[in-house]
C-alpha cells in the first residue's frame, strides 16, 4: 500500500516537472540558479501585484457593494454596468469622476512643469564650481528626504488661512490684501501642485545634476573657442545633452504624480474640497465611504489604463524621435 502510494507520488512529481516546467529543465545550470535567486521576489510580486490586479479587474465587473464585502464571490455579474455608471457624466458619480480626472491632469502636468523648472535651475546652479557646493546639494535634497507625511503637515500648518505664516508673510509684503483660502475652494488643486512640487523637485534636481555631470567638458571648451556665450552653450550643448535624462524625468514625474496618494490625502485633511480630489483620492473616498468596491475597482482600472496608455504613447514618441534623429 505504502509502496504504491509512494510510487504514485513520485510519478506525479515527475509528470509535474515534465509537464509544467519543461522550460525550466531546458535552462542551463547557471540560469536555473538565477531564477532560484529571483524566486522569492517573483512569488511576492505574483501574490501582491499580479493576482490583485486580475482580481481587481474581476471585481470591476461584479456588483460588489456594502452587502457583499465579505462574500464578494456571491455578488452578481453585471458586465460593464460599473464602467457605464462611473463614466456616465449625467450621474453625480460620473460627473465627479470626470472632474477628478481633469484635476489629475492639472496635478501631474503642473507638478511636472514646476519641478522641472525648479530642478533644472537648481542643477545648473550646483553644476558650477564654488565653495560649499556639496553642502548646498545636501541641503537642497532635504525636502525630498524628510518624511513627506511630516513636510505635508508643515505645509498644511503654514497654509492655514487665519494663522498660517504664508498668508501673514504675503500680507505684510503687500502681495495680497486679503488672506487667501489655500486649502478650501476651487484653487486647492494649485496649492496641491505647489506643495507637491516642493517635495519632489530635489529628485528632479539630482537626476538632472547627474546628467549635467556626464556631459563631456570638451564640448564646452570647443564651444567657447568658437565664441559661444553662456546662453548659446546652454541652448546648443547643455539642453540637448540632457535630453535622455529629461525624458526619464518627464515620464517618472508624470506617472508618479498621477498615482500619488500621500500628498492630496495628508495636505487636504479629513474633508478634502472637490477641487483637490484627484482621481485616486476620489476613488478612495468613494469606495470606502459607501463600500462600493465594484464601482471603485472600475474607476481604478480606468485610471490604470490611462497611466499605461500615457506611458506607452510617450515611449512610442521617444522611439520615433530617436529614429528620426538617427536618420539625420
Amino acid at each position: 500500500m505504502t509502496r504504491t502510494s509512494s510510487r504514485v507520488r513520485s510519478s506525479v512529481a515527475e509528470i509535474e516537472i515534465g509537464r509544467y516546467l519543461p522550460l525550466y529543465n531546458r535552462l542551463s545550470d547557471e540560469q536555473q540558479y538565477a531564477y532560484k535567486l529571483l524566486l522569492p521576489g517573483l512569488l511576492m510580486m505574483l501574490l501582491i501585484h499580479f493576482i490583485p490586479i486580475v482580481w481587481g479587474v474581476l471585481i470591476s465587473v461584479l456588483g460588489v457593494d456594502s452587502g457583499y464585502v465579505s462574500q464578494w464571490y456571491e455578488a452578481p455579474f453585471v458586465w460593464a454596468e460599473n464602467y457605464r455608471f462611473v463614466l456616465d457624466p449625467r450621474t453625480v458619480v460620473g460627473e465627479r469622476f470626470w472632474y477628478s480626472l481633469r484635476q489629475t491632469v492639472i496635478f501631474s502636468v503642473g507638478t511636472l512643469l514646476l519641478t522641472y523648472v525648479l530642478g533644472l535651475t537648481a542643477a545648473l546652479l550646483l553644476n558650477q564650481r564654488f565653495k560649499g557646493r556639496f553642502a548646498a546639494r545636501t541641503l537642497l535634497l532635504l525636502p525630498w528626504v524628510a518624511p513627506s507625511v511630516v513636510t505635508l503637515l508643515i505645509w498644511r500648518m503654514m497654509l492655514q488661512q487665519q494663522s498660517g505664516i504664508i498668508n501673514s508673510l504675503l500680507l505684510s509684503l503687500g502681495v495680497i490684501s486679503e488672506p487667501i483660502y489655500w486649502l478650501i475652494g476651487d484653487n486647492t488643486i494649485w496649492t496641491l501642485v505647489l506643495v507637491h512640487s516642493w517635495t519632489q523637485f530635489p529628485l528632479v534636481m539630482i537626476m538632472l545634476y547627474a546628467g549635467l555631470q556626464s556631459i563631456p567638458e570638451q564640448l564646452y571648451e570647443a564651444a567657447s573657442i568658437d565664441g559661444a556665450g553662456r546662453w548659446e552653450q546652454f541652448r546648443y550643448i547643455t539642453f540637448p545633452q540632457l535630453k535622455p535624462v529629461s525624458a526619464v524625468v518627464v515620464l517618472l514625474m508624470m506617472l508618479w504624480t498621477m498615482i500619488n496618494f500621500t500628498s492630496p490625502y495628508i495636505l487636504l485633511g479629513a474633508q478634502p474640497p472637490q477641487s483637490g480630489q484627484v482621481s485616486i483620492l476620489y476613488i478612495y473616498n468613494f469606495a470606502f465611504s459607501n463600500y462600493q468596491f465594484g464601482r471603485g475597482a472600475a474607476m481604478s482600472v480606468v485610471l490604470f489604463a490611462i497611466a499605461m496608455a500615457m506611458a506607452m504613447l510617450y515611449y512610442k514618441y521617444l522611439f520615433d524621435q530617436d529614429f528620426t534623429e538617427g536618420d539625420r
Partner: peptide, 8 residues
Amino acid sequence: PGILILLP
C-alpha cells in the same frame, strides 16, 4: 495606482 491593488 495603489488603489487598484488596495480594493481587491
